[in-house]
Amino acid sequence: MELRGIKFTTIGLSLLVFAISLTQNALVVNYNNEIKTASSLEYLFIGSVTFMGGGLLEEIIWLASPLCLLAIVLMIKDDKRAVLVSLIASALAISFSFWHEILGAESGTMAKIVSFELGYYLWLSSILILTIGILIHYKMTLKTTLQA
C-alpha cells in the first residue's frame, strides 16, 4: 500500500472507531453506594472542564483525544512530531485502565470504577490504531527516503 493510502486508511479507521465509541458506555462506577453508568459522549463533553471540579488527573487523561486530533493534523502535514504526540496519547489512554477511582463530584468525592465498558475499549482502540498507523507510515517514509 502506498504512503498516502496508509495515511488516510489509518485516519479514517481511527476516526470511525472513535465515533462508534461515542455511542457506547465508557464506565460503570460506584458513587455513594449507587451504581452509575457513564456514556463515552458524556465524558467527551464533561472532560474538558473537569479541572474546574478538581479533576486535574482526569483532565490529563481527557487530553488523549485532543492529542489524537493534533497527531492527525501533523500526520496529514507529514510532520514527524505526529509519532511523539500519538505515543503520548496512547500512554495516557492506556494508563487510565490502571485507575481504580475517578472523581465522582465537584466536592472531591471519589467514585470507585466498577468496570470499563465497550466505549472505553473502543476509544483506546481508536488511539492505538492511530498510533500504529502513524508508526507504520513513518517507517515506510523513512525506508522510501533512504532508498532514494
Rank of each mutant, 00 (worst) to 15 (best):
G104P: 08
I136A: 03
L15A: 10
T50D: 09
F8H: 14
G5V: 02
I127A: 11
L130T: 05
Q24Y: 05
E101W: 06
L56Y: 13
S115M: 07
L41Y: 15
T10I: 10
Y43E: 14
L27E: 06
S97G: 14
I35R: 14
V49A: 08
T10W: 02
E34K: 04
L142F: 08
K36P: 12
S14F: 05
S115F: 01
G119C: 03
I11Q: 10
Y43S: 03
V17R: 08
G108E: 05
S39K: 15
G55N: 09
L57P: 00
F116S: 04
S48L: 11
L103Y: 07
A38M: 13
S86M: 02
W62F: 04
L135T: 08
L69S: 04
V29Q: 05
I60H: 06
Q147C: 00
V83Q: 14
Y138C: 02
S21R: 06
K7P: 03
T145S: 14
I60M: 00
L135H: 00
W62L: 03
Q24I: 00
S95N: 12
S97Y: 01
V17E: 09
S125R: 09
A38D: 13
L27A: 00
F98M: 10
I72M: 10
L69E: 10
M52E: 07
A89D: 01
D79I: 01
S65T: 15
E2Q: 14
K143Q: 12
Q147R: 07
S90F: 08
S107C: 01
I94V: 12
T23Y: 06
I136M: 08
K77G: 05
I11G: 05
E58G: 09
S48N: 07
W99T: 10
L57G: 08
I136N: 03
N32K: 03
S39V: 01
R4H: 14
L44D: 10
K112P: 04
W99N: 09
T50L: 04
L87M: 13
M140A: 13
L142G: 05
I60A: 02
R81L: 00
T23L: 10
A82W: 06
G108L: 02
G47A: 11
T10D: 00
I136Q: 06
I132R: 06
D79F: 10
I20V: 15
G12Q: 04
A91I: 13
I129T: 08
K36Y: 11
E2G: 15
L67N: 00
A38P: 03
S21Y: 04
A105D: 11
A111S: 12
R4V: 04
A26W: 06
E117R: 03
I88A: 07
G55H: 12
L122H: 00
T9Q: 04
I136H: 05
N33H: 07
F51A: 14
M52I: 11
V17W: 12
L128Y: 03
A26V: 04
P66Q: 03
T141D: 15
G5A: 11
I127S: 02
T131S: 14
Y120Q: 09
S95H: 05
L128S: 06
L22H: 03
T10V: 11
C68R: 02
K139E: 15
W123L: 11
L118A: 11
G54I: 01
I76C: 13
W123F: 14
L103K: 01
L92K: 07
I76T: 08
E101S: 07
L15M: 06
L135E: 13
V83M: 13
S126G: 00
V85K: 02
F96M: 10
E117V: 02
N30W: 05
A26T: 09
I127T: 13
